[in-house]
């Protein structure tokens, strides 16, 4: 017990862990949750986005979508390998959940996770069209970058390092979304369709940040797994999307 308390103090003061062996049980469990949530979100997101490749209007768009699908799988694999070091069965993991499964478009699941996996709420909703895919990617791309910047500071060093590398590419995915969005606008996309997709995805992506006063946050902060509260991250995201939303409603 005292050993765990010592490590907890160490973590609360900004200490880092670098191997499964020195992770206390509760720390291990919360770390696994974070990793599973990321892996599941990447797998489910990629599975859903794979269907969008064929919706891409041009070769460039399809390359971008393919690349996103490829790299999200790669990101999932990197973090899944880290889970494997803690005992997760990486061979079987992929087969456990139906990653393409979605709820009905008009269902509202809030911040819940309706299925058996840990993907963020937003990856439970179906994408309707290329325009819809681009809008979702712009909004969730920004959210992913903010969420990964936060997690890149986490106290489990191997994960922090993995997230830092992943962040570079997720940032590129966000940019691909923005480029796709600009191309849609240049091509004279229907503003009403864009606005309707924004209205659809905005609250759903916002919900992916979790509750404003999450009780779990205190524990995660104590473990050094999180630093900034959900509300701060959400506010940052809202400021980022405001400009894009304005360009659509204008």
């Amino acid at each position: 017990m005292s050993e765990q308390t010592d490590i907890t103090d160490y973590l609360a003061e900004g200490g880092k862990l670098s191997a499964p062996d020195n992770a206390p049980p509760r720390y291990r469990a919360e770390l696994m949750r974070i990793m599973a949530s990321f892996v599941d979100s990447e797998l489910a997101g990629a599975a859903g986005f794979a269907d969008c490749i064929n919706m891409g209007p041009g070769v460039k768009e399809r390359i971008a979508a393919s690349r996103i699908v490829l790299e999200k799988h790669d990101h999932a694999e990197r973090v899944l390998d880290l889970m494997g070091e803690f005992g997760a069965n990486t061979d079987r993991y992929m087969q456990v959940h139906p990653w393409t499964e979605r709820v009905d478009r008009d269902e509202d699941i809030g911040a819940t996770r309706p299925g058996g996996d840990m993907r963020l709420n937003v990856f439970w909703y179906p994408i309707e069209s290329w325009t819809d895919a681009v809008v979702m990617n712009v909004l969730m791309g920004k959210a992913t970058v903010i969420q990964l910047e936060e997690l890149s500071r986490c106290s489990y060093q191997p994960l922090a390092e993995a997230f830092r590398e992943i962040l570079l590419r997720e940032r590129r995915h966000m940019e691909l979304g923005e480029e796709g969005f600009a191309r849609l606008q240049d091509a004279g996309a229907d503003n009403a369709a864009l606005a309707s997709s924004f209205d659809y995805w905005r609250p759903r992506v916002a919900a992916s940040f979790g509750g404003r006063d999450s009780a779990r946050f205190a524990l995660l902060k104590k473990f050094g797994l999180r630093h900034r509260p959900n509300a701060d991250l959400l506010t940052e995201w809202e400021a980022m999307v405001e400009a894009v939303v304005k360009s659509v409603s204008a």
Partner: peptide
């Protein structure tokens, strides 16, 4: 608030 993730005996989060 017990920890879990996969609920399928695969990930070991709920150990």
């Amino acid at each position: 608030d017990a920890p879990f993730a996969c609920k399928a005996g695969v990930c070991s989060t709920c150990r």
